[in-house]
């Protein structure tokens, strides 16, 4: 590899911008690169790491340092507890019989102290392992919450975009019920959240309808609800319906749904421009 080519690839590698085959090729080349070439790459990395110093220094909140140092102290304490006891015991054994007779009075005290230390250390170890277990459980919970948070954020991002229309539904047949429709007009998808519908009789189902500007009623979905009258529906809007939509409504229909609405409106919402 000639000098210019090396410099170009080193500059890209130093800033982690090299990709694809060039990255593989360059990293392979580095295994046999000269000392001067390695130094050049390191210099470029140092330059790269220097750039943030151009940012105005930003003072982090004071509690952060305490958080970090607590974490470090916990780790250090956890590592130190056990070995100290072992080391102490070994020293006692190495004294031998002579040491035992010549230090008999002190030995009693030392034995008691060792015993006490062993019990205390045992308790500490037990406590430490319990804390470790709890910490692991918490870490799992945090990971799960983080996953849920990401999923929720994605759901929100999907729901609320610049091209999202929002439709609110309510109705006379079920005054306490309501529904919200989020319409992604780019992908023509609906996400419908329904709340507090009365429980449908065993031989009935709820049915969601598209109502067009020329008063056609087109079935969108037959659905049931949970015990609290809630459900969530995801519906792909037919392309030939979307431009003509004037409203959407929910009725109570015979099991399996109807070709046309046969009951009053449990929920209805007009669709604005």
């Amino acid at each position: 590899m000639d000098g210019d080519k090396f410099t170009e690839l080193a500059a890209l590698h130093a800033i982690n911008a090299l990709d694809g085959e060039e990255l593989q090729m360059f990293e392979q080349y580095l295994r046999t690169a000269s000392e001067a070439e390695r130094r050049e790459l390191q210099e470029l990395k140092d330059v790269w790491a220097t750039l943030p110093l151009a940012l105005p220094p930003t003072v982090p909140p004071s509690h952060l340092k305490a958080r970090l140092m607590d974490r470090i102290s916990e780790e250090v304490t956890g590592q130190d507890a056990s070995p100290k006891v072992v080391e102490f015991s070994l020293r006692q054994k190495s004294r031998g019989l002579f040491g035992f007779f010549s230090w008999q009075p002190a030995f009693g005290l030392l034995t008691a102290a060792t015993f006490l230390l062993a019990i205390t250390s045992g308790m500490l170890l037990w406590h430490s392992s319990r804390v470790a277990r709890e910490r692991d459980q918490l870490a799992q919970q945090v990971a799960e919450l983080s996953r849920l948070n990401i999923a929720t954020q994605k759901q929100l991002d999907d729901l609320v975009t610049q091209t999202t229309k929002f439709i609110s539904l309510s109705g006379k047949e079920a005054p306490t019920a309501n529904a919200k429709v989020f319409w992604d007009t780019t992908r023509n998808e609906w996400v419908v959240y329904i709340f507090n519908l009365p429980a449908a009789p065993p031989d009935k189902d709820y049915q969601l309808w598209y109502v067009t500007s020329d008063q056609q009623k087109i079935s969108a979905k037959v659905f049931g609800t949970d015990a609290k009258g809630r459900t969530e529906l995801r519906i792909a809007l037919p392309q030939n319906v979307a431009p003509r939509l004037a409203a959407t409504a929910v009725t109570l229909e015979p099991k399996g749904g109807s070709a046309q609405p046969t009951s009053g409106l449990y929920l209805v919402g007009a669709i604005g421009a």
């Binding site: 943030p52 220094p57 340092k65």
Partner: peptide
């Protein structure tokens, strides 16, 4: 050597830069 005081000093020295990078 696992010296916590050194970690404290390191934090004092670099926390502002690290935080600035992270915020950006």
């Amino acid at each position: 050597a696992r010296d916590q005081a050194a970690m404290n000093a390191l934090y004092e020295r670099y926390a502002n830069v690290v935080y600035a990078v992270a915020i950006r």
